[in-house]
Simulated scan of single mutants.
Amino acid sequence: MAYDEELAHRIRGVLSDERGLTERVMFGGLGFMLDGHMAVAAGSRGSLMVRVDPDGAEALVDGESVDHMEMGGRSLRGWLLVESPATVDDDALAQWVGRGVAFVRALPPKE
């Protein structure tokens, strides 16, 4: 299934002022990269993948709308899957995207 184009448009709005922004279609989603690091991705049915500090990820999991990201049967450390109920509001989406931005901005740029 393809990524949610409405969500991708909303993410673009949040990231419009970020330097080093690129987009890449991967794994059926649309990844938003900052200086080569993926910060967030639009998935299908409004789901958002967010890259966060692995040491703080557990505190953000609520077991309902936010859980650890899994791919191929294994949990991806430092990635959360945020379901659409947690991003319906534009401020909430901006907060989640901001978490991804903050984490990747702390990383050295990829060459």
Rank of each mutant, 00 (worst) to 15 (best):
E70F: 10
P108L: 13
L34F: 04
G73T: 07
A59D: 10
E64Q: 14
G46R: 01
S16Q: 13
D4H: 00
R51V: 07
A41P: 03
A94S: 08
V82P: 00
V52L: 06
P108Y: 09
H9N: 12
L7D: 04
V40M: 01
P108C: 12
V40L: 01
M38T: 03
F32I: 04
R24F: 05
L48I: 04
L7K: 04
M33S: 08
A92E: 14
E6R: 14
S65Y: 08
G98F: 06
A39Q: 00
G31R: 02
D4I: 01
E70N: 09
H68A: 13
H37T: 00
M38R: 03
D17G: 14
A59F: 06
A92M: 07
H9Y: 11
I11G: 05
K110T: 15
L93C: 08
F103L: 12
H37V: 03
V104C: 09
G29I: 07
G13R: 07
A92N: 04
L7G: 03
L60W: 03
R99A: 12
A39V: 01
G98L: 06
R99S: 09
V82L: 07
D91N: 12
M33L: 15
E18W: 04
M69I: 10
L15R: 02
D89C: 12
G36Q: 03
A86H: 06
A39K: 02
F32H: 01
P109I: 13
D90R: 08
M1D: 03
A59S: 12
H9L: 13
M71F: 08
G31N: 10
R51C: 01
K110C: 12
D35G: 06
L7A: 04
V50R: 01
